[in-house]
Nucleic acid binder design. Sequence first.
DNA 1: CTGAAAGCGCTAACAC
DNA 2: GTGTTAGCGCTTTCAG
Lengths: 339, 339
Amino acid sequence: MTTSRTDVPRRAGIADVARLAGVSVGTVSNVLNRPERVSEPTRAKVQEAIEELSFVRNASARQLREGTVHTVGAVVLDITNPFFTETARGIEDRLAQDEYTLMLGSSDEDPQRESRLLRMFEEHGVRGMLVTPSRGSLDALTRIHQRGTEVVLLDHTSPVPDMASVAVDDVQGAALAVRHLLEQGHERLAFLNGPVSIRQCVERRDGVVGALVEAGKDPAEALVEITMDSLNAAHGAQAMGELLDRAEPGVTATFCVNDFTALGALRALRERGRSIPGDMAIVGYDDVNFAADLAVPLTSVRQPTHEMGWRAADLLLGSSEPEHVVYQPDLVVRASSVS
Amino acid sequence: MTTSRTDVPRRAGIADVARLAGVSVGTVSNVLNRPERVSEPTRAKVQEAIEELSFVRNASARQLREGTVHTVGAVVLDITNPFFTETARGIEDRLAQDEYTLMLGSSDEDPQRESRLLRMFEEHGVRGMLVTPSRGSLDALTRIHQRGTEVVLLDHTSPVPDMASVAVDDVQGAALAVRHLLEQGHERLAFLNGPVSIRQCVERRDGVVGALVEAGKDPAEALVEITMDSLNAAHGAQAMGELLDRAEPGVTATFCVNDFTALGALRALRERGRSIPGDMAIVGYDDVNFAADLAVPLTSVRQPTHEMGWRAADLLLGSSEPEHVVYQPDLVVRASSVS
DNA sequence: CTGAAAGCGCTAACAC
DNA sequence: GTGTTAGCGCTTTCAG
């Protein structure tokens, strides 16, 4: 004996509410959207009917009618990367203020996965998208933008003036780190960097070189760069091992392109009995949540991730002129670089 | 001289495509949804028109018509918590397989924020929701479920058989940790735990006590529990300091309710010159990404987070009977607990 | 202040 | 194989 009727009672609609309250659908809609235009008693009746039927608005129908929605799409490279996790939280917090819903996806820098996300967001008619573009996806974004969906680039500067962007200055971040090490009296530096296919690695390299030149040094002499395939602790440890094996004279400080790499470098140093920062000073990048609590607290470059996400969403919802925001990172000095 | 026509050309619809291709809207719809029913030449014409107009389907209209959508909502406590970040990625990966869109929100265990998210998801007519409920929100979820939206509880066992759930056994996780420490020959243990308002803390405590009893020990004697207000490194360090100050005789191992706490405990031990694991063995919980790369690699309880998210989404999309999955955690043994 | 009715863009019968 | 058409649930003129 099935009771399909009560099992899944068709969701009550505005018409059901109107019927129960003894008014027209127009009035119910007014109660929902412009309550001030409805007399107190009718409003009460309608509210009661809404409770009674546990009526839930149908966002699709609303959006179909209104054209625009309270939904924003975001594409990051990988949500498990702390940088993007924090950024996503910033986006979420700004959207919550205006009761917007966040659609989120990770592209993994896979063009196919990325374009699938962009397409889905566009189909859903999002109010706008916040996108960390991977290589070569700007064309697609430009087309989407031309078709009328607002786009804010995340962690990327904009190629065109009418597409907003929020980024952080990687050149400066690396320069801060290197200037700090030079101020501590180090004469030669190592730089554990990632592959040139990663934009951040290229820009941080520019910052490193720039700061050396600015200090009157010849990068060819003062800098030892080691390139890693991947930016994790294992590769960081291996790269530091290689550096120590080379026994480069006078290299007393290392700048690591991110904190995980630095974590590996610290481990390699300890395993070889080197003291930090006595034998080797270390600076990382990202200021991840555990940087301050390591055996030797790690000096690191901090980026305003939450703020970036917040601001990117704000650019979208604020809907003024497209802006191009570039944040400046900070250096958080800890024991790994000062004695 | 404004060109509002070309500035924001009204998004092309199925009707525009039909007109340009010289066919009817029905045929266009068929090309989109059941291409096999359309002759090759017409399909080509339609595809061409689609390209030409850069037509993008309107998901709202589709959903309104079809009733159901390719959208799933997820509510976690805080996306910046690594546990949920990994879970979210698992959800995302499963959804990607079926071209579903993920709507995501963090509740911060704030009932208001949570119910706002649930309401928005329900209004959007999501296919289902994956929810980590905070205290007392099960009633709301039950109502939503009764109204016809599928619900899968995340990191929480289900109170009713027809609401699916995916959880991990916290009692077992803690028991694994304690058994391991007992096997290493420790006679008395400390347990740095969080407040009873956190379910996990209560269950892990049960696991700790259970494992002691199982080993024939009296928890009142063999266990020193210190309660922390918050589960971060600072509180962990403070709690470990307190433990050392008390100079409890024979306490040679500490189980920390999570890895951040353990990180703080490790720091406190080092600052006081204690050796790890010689003077004090440490076990954490969560196996965060940096656990293996610390100065003393941390033994920790690993939970299949990505898998949990994946499975939760799979329960939803698989749409068979509601299931109640309970995962068993693993203990990852590292240097912090074995000499 | 309230009601009636016209769509928003699309899908799925149902005709042809 | 293709065309016609009736809605999906809601908002919003426009009358009353």
